[in-house]
Amino acid sequence: MNKSIKLFGYVLFVSGIILFGIMHLAIASYIPDLTGWSNPPGKLATVLDDIVGWVPYLLSIALFVVGALIMIYDLWQTKQKEHT
């Protein structure tokens, strides 16, 4: 696999994890300010609605999933080259 694509996968994976951690830090810092939440969506959905954090939260998950898929594909391709 091209080294730049491999590096891109690592960068996506790490940036997704960092963004995920920052979002959880923002969620944790906002929870003491909650006045209440309804039972069906729960605390996480209520906080994400209040801080308008759905886009970065889902983006972080998408980033590290795509990065992980690129890394897994690279490992699979490397194993295929070893067997031939």
Rank of each mutant, 00 (worst) to 15 (best):
P32C: 10
I70M: 14
G36K: 05
Y57I: 01
I5A: 03
T84R: 14
G36F: 03
A68R: 01
L48R: 01
Y57T: 01
N2W: 05
F13W: 04
Y57N: 04
I61A: 03
S4P: 11
K3S: 12
G67Q: 02
A26I: 05
I18A: 11
G67K: 02
Y10N: 12
T46W: 10
I51Q: 07
L34D: 07
L75Y: 13
Y57M: 05
P41F: 06
N39D: 11
V65Y: 09
V66K: 00
L34K: 09
V14W: 13
I51Y: 14
Y30L: 08
S15N: 10
P41K: 02
K6F: 06
I51N: 10
N2M: 11
A62Q: 07
H83S: 13
S4I: 15
Q77K: 10
T78R: 07
G21D: 04
E82A: 14
N39L: 08
A26C: 02
M23V: 04
V66P: 05
T84K: 12
N39R: 13
I51W: 13
K79F: 08
L63P: 00
I61Y: 06
L44H: 12
T35I: 12
Q77S: 13
A62Y: 07
L69G: 06
S29E: 15
L19D: 00
M71W: 01
M71L: 14
I5Q: 03
K6H: 08
G16M: 08
T35A: 10
L12D: 00
N39I: 10
E82K: 15
S38T: 12
P56V: 01
H83T: 11
H24S: 02
Y10H: 08
V11I: 15
P41S: 10
Q80K: 15
L75H: 14
L19C: 04
N39F: 08
E82S: 12
D50Y: 01
V14K: 02
L34F: 12
S4W: 15
V52T: 09
I27W: 11
S29H: 05
T84P: 03
P56D: 05
D74S: 13
H24P: 04
I70T: 06
G36V: 07
G67P: 03
V52N: 12
P32K: 13
P40V: 11
H83M: 11
G21W: 04
L25I: 08
G16Y: 03
S29D: 14
L34E: 06
K81H: 07
M71A: 09
H24A: 01
G9D: 04
V47G: 01
S38H: 07
G21L: 08
